[in-house]
């Protein structure tokens, strides 16, 4: 039952991703779509931590930025090929997340939020200050992504790569959730003490998802750097971290597809809201509040529950 639903979901997602470009009249639409899909992958990783692990992180943009700058510096300054640079950056971020994850994941709730926020801000400050390496607040240019003579050019090519990546990420996430690890995580979320009592090594599971989510962010950060061709420390700011969390929560915590929906909607929203001009911030904030007040479980889970209810009533 669970297996078929999973395959069905993946199939539907793949189908939407294949059909969506039919509605894209120009490269700008592809560009926005790529950004939405990139964010979706980061959010899938973050959702493992927030939705399933029950641990908040207000510093994930820091890992995203480290991935981006890692790739940028290794390829531009040290002339490394893009793929090893990306993997090396992700490895570095993974190790960093492991090292800081162990002590800080002992913290709970708002204290953990503070600690992750602090780490994100420290990363941001380092990127801003070490201008010899990073170009400082005004940013640095990055070369296009190329593997063995093949160069990723244009928004269309990036779209298909991002779409493939998203399907892969969703598949990985669904499998992880369905594995013993996932069950242990849900136990941690439900009651950490309870989980410990029945013999779950909660801290190592928490650290594991923290590392996985950081690596997701780093990999996407690397790709983002190559795609946009120009990065500034701004991509690692506190606001971006908050943005990722909002995407996850708005879409629906503990729902992989919910994270995808949340990421896509919040990436598109600012583009749509340009029509309200000066009222953009008000409308945006209002939508955020309204969604969380009326659909506290997030968009997708509430929607699914609503449909079920209606279906049930009809029968």
């Amino acid at each position: 039952m669970w297996k078929t639903a999973r395959i069905g979901g993946l199939g539907a997602l793949a189908l939407i991703l294949v059909l969506a470009p039919l509605g894209f009249p120009n490269a700008y639409f592809y560009d926005i779509a790529v950004k939405a899909l990139f964010n979706a992958v980061v959010c899938i990783g973050l959702n493992l931590l927030i939705g399933y692990g029950g641990q908040i992180s207000l510093g994930h943009a820091g890992f995203f930025a480290l991935g981006a700058y890692g790739s940028a510096i290794l390829t531009v300054t040290y002339k490394l090929p893009a793929l090893p640079a990306m993997l090396l950056s992700a490895l570095g971020v993974g190790v960093l997340a492991y090292l800081i994850g162990r002590p800080i994941l002992r913290l709970k709730g708002h204290y953990l939020a503070m600690a992750t926020l602090g780490i994100g801000i420290i990363i941001h400050i380092v990127l801003k200050t070490e201008s010899g390496l990073t170009g400082g607040p005004d940013g640095m240019g990055v070369d296009p992504f190329s593997v063995m003579g093949f160069t990723m050019m244009g928004d269309r090519m990036w779209y298909w790569a991002a779409a493939a990546l998203l399907v892969l990420a969703v598949w990985l996430s669904l499998n992880l959730i369905d594995s013993p690890v996932g069950r242990a995580l849900r136990a941690v979320h439900g009651s950490e003490v309870g989980a410990e009592v029945v013999g779950v090594d909660t801290s190592s599971y928490k650290v594991m998802v923290f590392v996985v989510s950081a690596v997701f962010a780093s990999l996407i950060g690397s790709l983002f750097a190559h795609k946009d061709g120009f990065i500034t420390p701004d991509i690692g700011s506190f606001f971006r971290s908050v943005e990722f969390v909002v995407m996850v929560v708005l879409g629906g915590m503990a729902s992989t597809f919910g994270s995808v929906v949340g990421a896509i909607i919040l990436t598109l929203l600012p583009q749509v809201l340009t029509v309200v001009e000066d009222y953009e911030a008000m409308v945006f904030g209002g939508i955020m509040m309204g969604t969380m007040i009326f659909l506290p479980k997030g968009l997708l889970p509430s929607l699914v529950a609503g449909l079920r209810k209606r279906g049930g009533a009809a029968q």
Binding site: V246, M253, A281, M292, I293, P296
Partner: peptide, 15 residues
């Protein structure tokens, strides 16, 4: 959920 309320207050600050 705590996280949900955090998002509401962040939304309020933007608003």
């Amino acid at each position: 959920d705590v996280t949900t309320i955090i998002i509401i207050t962040i939304g309020a600050s933007i608003f």
